[in-house]
Design a protein around this nucleic acid. Structure first.
Lengths: 282, 282
DNA sequence: TCGGATTACGTGCACCGTAATGATC
DNA sequence: GATCATTACGGTGCACGTAATCCGA
C-alpha cells in the first residue's frame, strides 16, 4: 500500500524539480524526501528517477506515476470536501431570498423551529435560487414570482415607495411612476436583492448612487437632499418626519413573496409553513 | 491529510459491518480499528458513525465517505497497476503471433538482438493481435494476412499436411482437400493458433479430438490409428516413418506470415527485420 | 564555494497488540 | 456466556531532523 503523504511528496517534487525546493514547500527536510522517493520506488518495485550525482529527475515512468498521483490526491481531496459539505448540509438549513425582508423575517423563525441547526441565509436572483434549490445548495428559497412546481406558500408582500425631502421637485406629487424617475439621482443601498434589478430595468435612464454600507446609507439619506427608495416594511417606525413618502403607481412596485421548498422536504418544513412570522401573513 | 490505510480500513468496515469482522479481514486487532475510525472522524472533523453501546455503524455521512474512499483506493490501485505495466513495457518486447511457429523462430532471435529486454510471446487471433499492436499490448505481431498499414515484412511460409497411419482409408490419397476430411476424426493439439480456426471453418462437419498437452498429444499420435495435422515446419526431423504425410490441396492450407511493428518502432526493430532467422527467409 | 543529493545516526511519536472493562444479546 | 466496542498500557517501527559527506557548477 502506497500512502497519500508519499504521493503528495512525489507530486511536489514533480512540480518543483529539485528535492530541496520540494522539501521547502512541504516543510520537511531534504533527507526525508530522499528517503520517501526511495520508498515509493521500493513499494512500486519500479525505477522512477534518473540519478545523476548531483541531480534527481523523474524518468518517463516517474512522470506517469506523478500524473496518477495527482489524480489520487484530487480524489482524496474530493472525498474530504464532499463529506464535509454533506455533513454541513445535514446540520444547516440554507435559505435563499430574492430580497432582504423575507430573510429578516424567516431567519429568526427558522432558528426558533430548528434550534439544533445552523441557519444560513443568502440574497440572490430568482434564477440562482431555483438552481440552488434543485442542486441542494438551498433547502428553502423565497422568490417573487409565482412558482410552478415544488411546495410553496405566500409569505408576504412588499410595496416600493420613494422618500424625498420636502424641497425636492418630486415632493409635489401624490404618486409617481417609474417613468417619472427617469434620470433622477437616487441614493441607493446595494443589498436589496431583486429591487435593484427592478428599478434599474423599469426606470428609464436610471441614475443610482450606490452605497454598500447600511449605516452610512441611512446617515447620508437623512442628511442629504437626495431621494431614496423605501418600502412599506419600514413604514411605521423608520419613516423620517422630515421626508415625504410617495407611492409608486406601477404594478411591479408591489410584490408578493413565495416561500418554496422541495416536495420531498415539505413534511420537514411543515412547522415553518404553518407558523410563518406575523409579517408574512399580512 | 487522510492516509490510504485509513480509507482501506473504512471501506473494509463498510463491507464487513462490524469492527471485529473487518479487523480479521485486515489482519489487525479490533482496538486498532476502533482507533482508526476515530482518527478518520477526527481528521475529517465530521461524525461518520452511529454509536450504540455495543454496535458501531456508518451514518449517512459515513456511507458517503466510504463510497468516496473506495474510489480513492481504486485510483491508487490504478496508479500501481499502470506504473508497473508501463515500466514493464519499457523492459519487455511483447510479441504476438497467430501461430506457434513464428514465435518459435522469432523469440530466440529477439533474445539475441535485445538481450537486456524481456521477451514475451502470445498466440492469439489476428484481430486481437492488431488491436494489441494499436493499444500497445504488443510491439511486434505476426499475422497470416497481408497487412495494409504499419511496417511489415514477410517472415516465412507454412503448409498444412495430414499425417495418417498406413492402414487409414485416407492413406490411399496422394493429396486431399478439406472437403475430403468432412466428419473424419482427427487428433488435434490445441495450441496451434489460427490453424485451429482454419480447419474448423474449412472442413465440413469437423470432428477434432482436442489435446492440450503437447507431449501427450505426440505420444497418442504415434500410438493410435487417428490422423493428425502436420506442417512442413517439422517435415525433416519429426516425420514419423510409420505414417504417411499427405498434402492438402486447398490454397488456404499454405500461408504466408507477416511480421509487423508500428511505424514509429520500425527503426528500433530494423535489426530484427534485417536479420530474420533462416526459416523465415525460405 | 555554494547548492543539491545522499548517508549516518539518534529520537519521538504514532500505530500497534495485549489485556482489561463495559455493554448487549 | 458470547459477541462486540472501547479504554488502558506498554512496546516498537518508522518517519523525521540534525549533522556529515560527496559531488558538480
Amino acid at each position: 500500500m502506497i500512502e497519500i503523504y508519499l504521493l503528495k511528496q512525489l507530486t511536489s517534487f514533480a512540480k518543483c524539480g529539485t528535492l530541496s525546493a520540494a522539501a521547502e514547500e512541504l516543510h520537511i527536510s531534504q533527507p526525508a524526501l530522499t528517503r520517501s522517493m526511495k520508498k515509493i520506488e521500493e513499494e512500486l518495485g519500479v525505477i522512477l528517477f534518473e540519478r545523476q550525482k548531483n541531480r534527481l529527475s523523474l524518468n518517463q515512468t516517474g512522470k506517469l506515476a506523478a500524473e496518477h498521483a495527482l489524480r489520487v490526491l484530487e480524489q482524496s481531496g474530493d472525498l474530504i470536501d464532499k463529506v464535509r459539505a454533506y455533513d454541513r448540509s445535514l446540520h444547516t438549513i440554507a435559505l435563499g431570498c430574492c430580497a432582504p425582508v423575507p430573510s429578516y423575517e424567516l431567519t429568526p423563525r427558522l432558528q426558533q423551529l430548528f434550534g439544533d441547526m445552523t441557519i444560513s441565509s443568502d440574497i440572490r436572483s430568482d434564477n440562482y435560487l431555483w438552481y440552488g434549490l434543485e442542486s441542494g445548495t438551498y433547502q428553502l428559497i423565497v422568490t417573487h414570482e409565482l412558482p410552478t412546481k415544488e411546495t410553496y406558500t405566500v409569505c408576504g408582500h412588499e410595496k416600493l415607495f420613494i422618500s424625498v425631502p420636502p424641497a425636492h421637485p418630486l415632493a409635489a406629487f401624490e404618486s409617481v411612476s417609474f417613468e417619472d424617475l427617469a434620470g433622477v439621482p437616487f441614493l441607493q443601498y446595494s443589498q436589496v436583492g431583486f429591487w435593484f434589478d427592478l428599478v434599474t430595468q423599469k426606470i428609464p435612464n436610471p441614475h443610482l448612487l450606490m452605497q454598500d454600507n447600511r449605516d452610512t446609507f441611512l446617515e447620508i439619506a437623512n442628511n442629504s437632499a437626495l431621494p431614496t427608495f423605501f418600502t412599506d416594511y419600514f413604514s411605521q417606525d423608520k419613516r423620517s418626519l422630515t421626508r415625504k413618502i410617495i407611492p409608486i403607481r406601477n404594478p411591479e412596485a408591489e410584490v408578493t413573496y413565495y416561500l418554496v421548498c422541495k416536495k420531498k422536504d415539505s413534511q420537514r418544513f411543515k412547522p415553518l409553513f404553518n407558523h410563518l412570522p406575523e409579517w408574512c401573513l399580512k
